[in-house]
């Protein structure tokens, strides 16, 4: 039997054509990897949200007065949701690229006819899908237990997609840089968790002492949480255009950094 097929598989590719099949394969492949750990990927954040609803909704929440006219659980849940999205996005993209480098199967993509943009999109697509599934799951759980609502679904999707893209990019940068597992988890410990806690998950800016409020205003997490909170319960502490501009600006900046790293082969090519 010949190794050749009868098809002309070596037909030339138009210079600017997009490798759609390759992109689809990247996504399919990552989905397959994710489905090896569905509990960790999807069930864990939903259970975590359920626990927050139980504690802040039924145990502690009933003893806390309304915040700006909102029940405490309704105020807190968007922040909890955003923390889960941020963690999922960062862990998904950083571990995806780190393991590909660690086991060297990133070389499968490097020897294939992918442009840098295709490789980046392929890496990020599953991150965004995972985060949207995570967020919608938490939203459904919250709504089912009467802990939250949705005032603007397109706005909600906008924030989830944009924030997961930002932390997907950050994950890619860290995944390219890291040389061990310790380095891979460092940003979560020293950067993501602290900033999300002071980004207005549990309190409004006005609940902070006046001299500390600048930390909230200067913290991008505040705008992410504020944006998704507005899309869910209609409450906002900052102008919508400001939060959206900062977030789009940050996503654009990180996209440029990631593109630069890929085009230089940083952490990818020898």
């Amino acid at each position: 039997m010949r190794i050749h097929g009868d098809q002309d598989l070596g037909a030339p590719m138009a210079p600017m054509s997009i490798n759609w099949v390759g992109l689809g394969t990247m996504i399919r492949r990552e989905l397959s990897r994710l489905m090896r750990v569905p509990t960790q990927a999807f069930v864990a954040p939903w259970i975590s949200a359920l626990m927050f609803i139980f504690v802040f909704g039924f145990v502690v929440g009933s003893r806390i007065k309304l915040i700006e006219g909102q029940r405490y659980i309704s105020f807190v849940l968007p922040g909890i949701l955003m923390m889960n999205v941020v963690n999922a996005a960062f862990l998904q993209s950083s571990s995806q690229i780190y393991f590909q480098r660690f086991l060297r199967y990133i070389e499968e993509a490097l020897v294939a006819p992918f442009s840098y943009v295709e490789m980046i999109v392929g890496l990020l697509a599953m991150t965004v899908v995972r985060c949207v599934i995570t967020a919608i799951g938490i939203l459904i759980i919250g709504t089912a237990f009467g802990a939250t609502s949705i005032s603007g679904l397109p706005e909600f999707i906008f924030w989830i997609v944009l924030v997961s893209t930002i932390f997907g990019f950050l994950g890619v940068i860290v995944g390219l840089w890291a040389n061990n597992f310790e380095q891979l988890t460092m940003p979560v410990i020293f950067f993501i968790t602290p900033l999300s806690f002071v980004g207005g998950v549990f309190n409004t800016v006005h609940m902070l002492p006046e001299w500390l409020r600048w930390i909230a205003w200067a913290n991008p997490f505040f705008y992410f949480i504020n944006g998704v909170r507005h899309s869910m319960i209609g409450f906002t502490e900052a102008p919508e255009w400001l939060g959206a501009s900062i977030t789009v600006g940050l996503a654009t900046l990180l996209a440029a950094v990631v593109w630069q790293l890929f085009s230089r082969g940083y952490g990818l090519r020898e």
Binding site: L9, N19, V21, G22, T25, R28, R29, A112, P113, F114
Partner: peptide
Amino acid sequence: WMGGYFGLRAPE
């Protein structure tokens, strides 16, 4: 997966 990376459609 490698076939997919090289742009081969599902049937081929």
